[in-house]
């Protein structure tokens, strides 16, 4: 090979970049996040259900929260009627976090795993 030293150095640098996910995780086992729903308020509920169905909340909770913010703060609307026709008071701290009171074990658990830092807590208290 002509200029073998330089070419092999290049290949090694390339491999260091390309295989980063493999060697940086070598020997580690990944524990998926387990958001904790075990709060006193949820324990008290007879039928454990959120504002919207679980699947919808998993995928769209961020959109729902932002819609709530816009409704409450920009339009002054404080009532949300969900897909089951029930009405809820629009408030992160008084509605959402009344049940999901443990931010660390509920919100942060997944957000940390996904590398997401939502700006909710720029304004809201986490209690």
């Amino acid at each position: 090979m002509y200029d073998g030293g330089k070419i092999i150095t290049g290949i090694v640098i390339f491999l260091l970049f390309a295989l980063f996910p493999i060697y940086s995780n070598f020997g580690k086992t990944y524990k998926p996040p387990k958001p904790d729903l075990n709060t006193p308020e949820i324990q008290k509920m007879e039928v454990k259900k959120c504002v919207e169905p679980k699947e919808y909340m998993r995928a769209e909770h961020m959109k729902l929260l932002v819609d709530w913010r816009d409704a409450a703060l920009r339009e002054g609307k404080r009532t949300y009627i969900n897909s089951r026709g029930e009405s809820y008071f629009i408030s992160l701290q008084n509605t959402c976090m009344r049940c999901h009171s443990d931010k660390k074990k509920f919100c942060d658990e997944c957000h940390k795993h996904a590398g997401v830092s939502p700006y909710c807590w720029d304004c809201h208290f986490a209690k």
Binding site: F20, P21, S24, N25, K28, Y30, K112, H113, A114, G115
Partner: peptide
Amino acid sequence: HLRFFTQPPS
């Protein structure tokens, strides 16, 4: 996409 391959995310 490193967020999917590092834990905690880089």
